[in-house]
Design a protein around this nucleic acid. Structure first.
Length: 413
RNA sequence: GCGAGCGUAGCUCAGUCGGUUAGAGCGCUGGUUUGUGGUACCAGAGGUCACGGGUUCGAGUCCCGUCGCUCGCCCCA
């Protein structure tokens, strides 16, 4: 281990990576704004309790993935493993329930102590939205539409599939859970070790097992849809109808369940097959009850979060940065003129860089390596005439231009 | 947390059965005489062979441990 290397599962974002991430985050910000979402930010660490209470004591995130530590004041602190808990905490703490609905957008780093893989990091980045205070299926459908628009804007809609499911309300879920557990217990001896463990902790997870024997057992398990009460069924039908009305294609996935306790009713994911095992690129759902659990009043919520790294991996090469204009002063006298001229060019909107050493030949070579589109040459001849030589580095064409006119001569870039 | 593969220059990779001074391409730096880049030619810099230990006369090569990456599981975005 070298002291120079980044901690496991964390990455430096060099300019090219950073550009790709910015593109994702800016698209999210821009598109969600069309749906009325406004950006907010919460601290990247919270009291541990904030996550324990909201994510559920038994969830994997809480039991083994949190970065938790005691600060110097003895407080138990956790680096946020996801965004919703902090947003809801802030929502309650700042009395935002006085002005419903709230449409909130956030972005930033999240932290989970996991074994890194492609598209899975210990520090990763998410963008997300939360729509708080709307209890009707309209909100679910609108939030899903917003996610779809975001992915369309990034140009990855064709690589992803929208999968949806319903977890029903608490009553439906409890009934189904009882029925499922009763069924699975009969076949516990045929289940994998993992699934026997799931049976105790989170039985819905058994449905999602990749083990073949488990799947054979699950094939005849009771269906969730048979246990939905009338309200839950109506709610889900409503969501589906709205999606259809907007022309959004989706696939029903009855095995789509949630690891976090606070979800109910609508659960959805946009998945891709071209990222390997980490195929979920954006996921969300409804979380009625979470606000109350956090100490607020009964305010329903629905939202989603998307992984920036995973989306960045999907969008391919980021666009190149703008090509600069390169200043080429030759001699001390020219250098004195170069900075003020560069300032004027920048004020006119040009990206301007400087060559600092070397003769003309060397400086032009540097300009070329910097992918400059033009060079502004200031030498003895030019100074004597009160002009600069503006050279187009693509065509090789160059003209003597009055210093006042250089910005215009460089065009729009 | 579990299983497997990998780690040699900034990058992509050679490196034979364990044998002398660890190589190539690309990139980088400098040069090919005067104020004109890209191409070409010449030269150069750059390595703790991931880290630590062991076996051996001798380890980039074999063994063990650690760290990291990759793939799968778990779980998730």
């Amino acid at each position: 281990m070298s002291a120079l290397q980044a901690v496991r599962g964390t990455h430096d974002h060099l300019p090219e990576t950073r550009r790709a991430h910015r593109r994702v985050a800016e698209a999210a910000h821009r598109v969600t704004a069309l749906y009325g979402f406004q950006e907010m930010a919460t601290p990247i660490f919270e009291f541990t309790e904030v996550f324990q209470r909201t994510l559920g004591e038994t969830s994997d995130v809480v039991t083994k993935e949190m970065y938790t530590f005691h600060d110097k004041g003895g407080e138990q602190i956790t680096l946020r493993p996801e965004g919703t808990a902090g947003v809801v905490r802030a929502f309650v703490a700042n009395g935002l329930q006085q002005a419903l609905p709230q449409r909130l957008f956030y972005q930033g780093p999240m932290f989970r102590y996991e074994r890194p893989q492609k598209g899975r990091l210990r520090q990763f980045h998410q963008v997300g939205v939360e729509l708080l205070g709307v209890a009707t299926p309209l909100a679910d459908a609108e939030v899903i539409a917003c996610a779809a628009a975001f992915l369309r804007d990034l140009g990855v809609a064709g690589d992803t599939t929208l999968e949806i499911n319903t977890l029903g309300d608490a009553e439906s879920r409890a009934n189904y859970r009882d029925a499922l557990v009763a069924y699975l217990r009969q076949y516990a001896h045929r289940l994998s070790d993992d699934s026997r463990e799931r049976l105790e902790r989170n039985p819905l997870r058994v449905l999602d097992s990749k083990d073949e024997n488990d799947q054979a057992v699950v094939a005849d398990a009771p269906s969730f849809l048979d246990y939905l009460n009338a309200d839950s069924r109506a709610f889900f039908d409503g969501v589906c109808a709205h999606l259809a009305a907007m022309g959004l294609d989706y696939v029903m996935n009855p095995r789509l369940v949630r690891g976090l306790d606070y979800y109910c009713h609508t659960a959805f994911e946009f998945t891709t097959t071209i990222l390997g095992a980490q195929g979920t690129v954006l996921a969300g759902g409804r979380y009625d009850g979470l606000v109350e659990q956090m100490g607020g009043s009964a305010v329903s919520g629905v939202g989603w979060a998307a992984g920036i790294e995973r989306l960045a991996a999907l969008i391919g090469d980021p666009e190149a940065p703008p090509r600069p204009v390169m200043m080429v002063p030759l001699g001390e006298e020219a250098e004195r003129h170069a900075l003020p001229l560069a300032e004027r060019l920048r004020a006119a909107g040009h990206v301007v860089e400087m060559t600092y050493t070397g003769n003309l030949k060397k400086r032009l070579k540097r300009a070329d390596r910097s992918n400059a589109r033009a060079a502004v040459i200031l030498g003895e001849d030019e100074l004597a005439a009160g002009r600069a030589t503006v050279r187009d580095l693509d065509t090789g064409q160059q003209d003597a231009v009055a210093l006042d006119a250089v910005a215009d001569a460089l065009g729009q870039g």
